[in-house]
Simulated assay, not measured.
Amino acid sequence: MIQFTLEGDYIPLIQLLKATNLVSSGGDAQMVVTDGMVKYNGDVDYRKRLKVKRGDKVEFNGQTIEII
């Protein structure tokens, strides 16, 4: 599990995937979200600009990111 410390109120999903090095670029992040490869709090989510907040969990490619 990856723990990501949030510094503001939220982080857009695409930026979170880049910040945790699970994708190499913003374009890659957009593609995996659009292809339904990312789960947000247990459900597949297709929103690229989703605001991820403290307490949320994001799953991608066998990794879980916990926002703290």
Rank of each mutant, 00 (worst) to 15 (best):
M1G: 13
I2A: 00
I2Y: 08
F4A: 02
F4Q: 04
T5D: 10
T5A: 05
L6I: 10
E7W: 02
E7G: 05
G8T: 11
D9C: 01
D9V: 09
D9P: 01
D9A: 08
Y10A: 11
Y10G: 05
I11Y: 01
P12C: 09
P12A: 14
L13C: 05
L13D: 05
Q15D: 15
L17G: 00
L17Q: 00
L17F: 01
T20Q: 00
L22T: 03
V23N: 08
S24W: 10
S25H: 11
S25W: 03
S25L: 07
A29T: 03
A29N: 01
Q30S: 15
M31D: 11
M31W: 14
V32F: 00
V32L: 09
V32N: 06
D35V: 04
G36N: 13
M37Q: 15
M37D: 13
V38D: 03
K39V: 03
N41I: 06
G42P: 06
D43L: 09
D45Q: 04
Y46N: 11
Y46S: 12
R47G: 02
K48M: 11
R49K: 12
R49V: 14
L50V: 03
K51Y: 10
K51W: 07
V52T: 08
V52K: 02
V52S: 07
V52G: 01
K53V: 15
K53M: 14
R54A: 15
R54L: 14
G55Q: 06
K57L: 13
V58I: 15
E59L: 06
F60T: 00
F60L: 00
N61Y: 11
G62P: 10
G62V: 07
G62Y: 02
G62E: 02
Q63W: 05
Q63C: 13
T64V: 15
I65Q: 01
I65K: 04
I65H: 01
E66I: 11
I67V: 11
I67R: 06
I68V: 13
